[in-house]
């Protein structure tokens, strides 16, 4: 058994898949270079990313799969789960090995897996569309911190761009240390340098926020409190929809 390492990019993965076919290998596992811990007798080779090869694999998949299913495969990559490459390779092999479109073949474990994992990633995308809370800075930028379970910022950029087309905004992934910034024209990937005394959690005081920010947070908290019907109390249901790990980023749950 040999392990091939790639640079962690989606192209890097596809490029390695190209070599699986090119070199006719079946006893190879593909892993991200950065999460790999070398085993004692493990044979490890680093595979450089060759974009042209990645493009050929993608073009081949595009011929056999719809846009929606390609997106599902990309979602599996964004899940960043360790060893997920094995399922993705299994899926790609099943696709190339079959004459017909296999995307509905849910009796196959790889097809079912890709559908189910992409649903989880999609749910996290949807949660971010719901749980982002912007705070207005005095520079007139709407700023939000998140740390999603999966790397979904690439998936939500379009939603926020279409919705908040007339305001500057930043959504910053605290865990993965990058963010997306919309400058009224297009969305860019950014990395922020924080000062040493930076408090990673929101603070309503201090001189970074717009003067009206505190008022609207207070009004939102008031609204949130009043919208609750006490005699229907059901915290279990609340937690089910809004797990506790998201609370520290939610204005209404932080101050409550």
């Amino acid at each position: 058994m040999t392990t091939w390492l790639y640079d962690g990019s989606f192209d890097g993965f596809l490029s390695a898949v190209f070599d699986l076919y090119w070199q006719k290998k079946t006893d190879v596992v593909i892993r991200k270079e950065q999460d790999h811990v070398k085993g004692l007798f493990e044979n490890v080779i680093f595979m450089p990313t060759i974009t042209a090869n990645a493009d050929r694999v993608w073009a081949g998949l595009t011929k056999k799969l719809t846009e929606a299913v390609l997106q599902q495969l990309f979602c599996c990559y964004l899940s960043e789960l360790p060893g997920e490459e094995d399922n993705m390779v299994g899926f790609i092999r099943h696709v190339f090995a079959s004459e017909q479109d296999v995307s509905g073949d849910f009796g196959n474990k790889y097809v079912l897996h890709v559908t189910q994992l992409s649903r989880k990633v999609h749910r996290e995308k949807h949660r971010m569309e719901a749980f982002v809370r912007f705070q207005l800075t005095k520079d007139n930028i709407y700023y939000s911190l998140v740390s999603p379970d999966y790397n979904v910022l690439p998936l939500i950029a379009r939603h926020f761009k279409e919705r908040y087309a007339d305001q500057y905004w930043i959504i910053y992934d605290e865990r993965r240390r990058f963010g997306i910034y919309y400058n009224l024209d297009k969305v860019e990937t950014i990395r922020l340098q924080f000062n040493a005394d930076y408090d990673p959690h929101y603070h309503t005081t201090g001189n970074v926020w717009a003067p009206e920010e505190e008022l609207y947070q207070r009004l939102w908290n008031t609204y949130f409190k009043e919208a609750n019907i006490v005699s229907r109390r059901n915290p279990r249901l609340q937690l089910q929809h809004m797990p506790r790990r998201y609370w520290k980023y939610l204005t209404e749950m932080r101050l409550g």
């Binding site: 719901a130 949130f224 919208a227 609750n228 019907i229 229907r232 929809h241 939610l250 209404e252």
Partner: peptide, 12 residues
């Protein structure tokens, strides 16, 4: 999109 959930479990 449900943006939040109150303590009665209903969405906001």
């Amino acid at each position: 999109i449900c943006h939040s959930y109150t303590a009665d479990g209903r969405c906001v």
